[in-house]
C-alpha cells in the first residue's frame, strides 16, 4: 500500500530544474506530483511521474543522482481539519513525520497527502485501523 516516488539531488543553481523537467518533458513523461526541499546549497526534487520507471531510467542515463522511495499516501476529504486528523493519528503513536506534501487532482473532491515517516509499517497499521483511505499507485 505504498506509493513510489522519485527523488533527485540537485545543486542550488540556475538551470538545474529546467534540465530535469526538460529531460522528462521531451520524453513525454507527465508529472503527477512535484515538491522541492531546498537548502542553501542543494535541493531535493521529489516527484511522482505517470511512468516512474521510465522517468528513473531517463534520469539515470542523463547522469542525475536519482533514487526511488516508498511513501505512505492517504486520501482525505478536501475540507478544513481533514489533514490535522490524519496527522494527529500518526503523532499520537509517537511516529515522526519526516516530510509531507499534498496535492489535489482535478475532478475530485478529495485531497491526497504523501508522507515519509520514521516507522512506515506501524504508521500504515494505525491508519488502516482507523479507516483512513490509503492511496496506491493505481489510484494516482
Amino acid at each position: 500500500m505504498l506509493v513510489k516516488q522519485l527523488s533527485v539531488f540537485m545543486e542550488n543553481r540556475p538551470g538545474r530544474l529546467y534540465k530535469l523537467t526538460h529531460a522528462l518533458g521531451k520524453e513525454g513523461i507527465d508529472f503527477v506530483t512535484l515538491s522541492i526541499a531546498d537548502t542553501k546549497d542543494f535541493g531535493i526534487v521529489r516527484f511522482i511521474a505517470r511512468d516512474n520507471e521510465r522517468a528513473y531510467e531517463i534520469l539515470k542515463n542523463e547522469g542525475f543522482t536519482v533514487g526511488i522511495t516508498e511513501l505512505i499516501g492517504v486520501e482525505v476529504d478536501d475540507k478544513p481539519n481533514a489533514l490535522a486528523e490524519v496527522i494527529a493519528l500518526i503523532e499520537a503513536a509517537n511516529i515522526n513525520i519526516e516530510y509531507l506534501y499534498s496535492f489535489v487532482l482535478t475532478n475530485h473532491n478529495s485531497a491526497k497527502i504523501l508522507m515519509r515517516v520514521e516507522d512506515t509499517d506501524r504508521a500504515l497499521k494505525i491508519l488502516t485501523e482507523k479507516g483512513i483511505k490509503l492511496l496506491s499507485e493505481k489510484i494516482l
Binding site: 516516488q5 527523488s7 542543494f42 543522482t65 515519509r116
Partner: peptide
C-alpha cells in the same frame, strides 16, 4: 545514492 531526505545529504 537515493537522495530523498535532506538530513541524509
Amino acid at each position: 545514492l537515493t537522495p530523498d531526505r535532506v538530513s541524509d545529504i
